[in-house]
Design a protein around this nucleic acid. Structure first.
Lengths: 155, 155
DNA sequence: TAATTTTTTGCGAATTTCGAAAGCGCAATT
DNA sequence: AATTGCGCTTTCGAAATTCGCAAAAAATTA
């Protein structure tokens, strides 16, 4: 497990603000060499610390319906069901949870019809699923991937 | 609202795979000019269709505890509470929902202690919150930002 | 149809990335 | 104390990419 020092955290912080910020600019920003920035970024990526992505705004590409779905599975079926759900393109997030639901997912749909199709035609037929609770999102307040405050004492 | 054509979707698809892929490479990939790729990317960004970010692996930076928290608010307090929660650095996602919980959030913590602090010392004292249900995540199966299948007939 | 706006193309200039060699610091070994 | 090895950093020119901009082309509007 790679241990991150202040340089790494600063680089992450800088890239959180703009994933395409040039190495040279990050270097200038912190008074270090471009090669160092590059070395650290490559090392962190190889260690799986982060990756470069784009964050698309779902509603701007026509995905107007978002839901969190809690799923109750039969004993022994959690892993199988979770892996199957992870393969669905509508599904952004799948996790195993403690408590009422063995699995919770977050998924996006173009319309309510598609959400209903997903729950009634697909989910209800997945082997191992006992029950589902759909939480329909009405409004987004925050959906950020730059939530980490690297100035925090914890790091 | 910007309407996306096939060129835009292809560019998004390409950048989903690698947020740092050069314009020139995307251009080559689809047989279009670098200038066109750049023009489309700038336009989409200005319209808020997407942004360049990095996706950090929470556990690799010491955030080992993840939770989804359902929140029941007093009538009329949802907006106020949601906005307040959105300001918390631990919180990645805040949405207003239909159903049992007016608000659901997704948050990351370095340890169970910090989660307990958050719920018992912070959440319980926020004015307008009536009750909370914490769903503690045990395992990540999928946490992707490239969930969009742009080959889908829907787009 | 003409006028206007939007999008695309094509370039050279400026900037960034990349590869690789050399240098440095430090701990372990002799 | 000198040596060795290893990981990290610096440096630098070559290659690739980005950028700005003007002109052409295409689409939209009047």
């Amino acid at each position: 497990m790679l241990k991150l020092d202040q340089t790494d955290l600063r680089i992450l912080q800088s890239l959180q603000a703009d994933g395409r910020r040039p190495y040279t600019e990050i270097a200038k920003q912190y008074g270090i060499s471009e090669g160092k920035v590059r070395f650290r970024i490559n090392r962190m990526m190889e260690s799986g610390v982060f990756e470069f992505v784009i964050h698309t705004n779902p509603s701007k590409i026509g995905l107007h319906v978002q839901a969190i779905i809690g799923i109750v599975t039969k004993v022994g079926y959690r892993d199988k069901v979770a892996m199957e759900l992870a393969d669905c393109k509508e599904v952004r997030f799948v996790g195993a949870f403690a408590g009422k639901y063995e699995i919770m997912i977050q998924a996006y749909f173009p319309s309510n019809e598609r959400l209903i199709e997903f729950t009634d035609l697909y989910l209800s037929k997945v082997d191992g699923i006992e029950a589902t609770d759909v939480f329909l999102e009405l409004k987004d307040y925050k959906d950020s991937f730059s939530y980490i405050d690297l100035a925090d004492e914890h790091f």
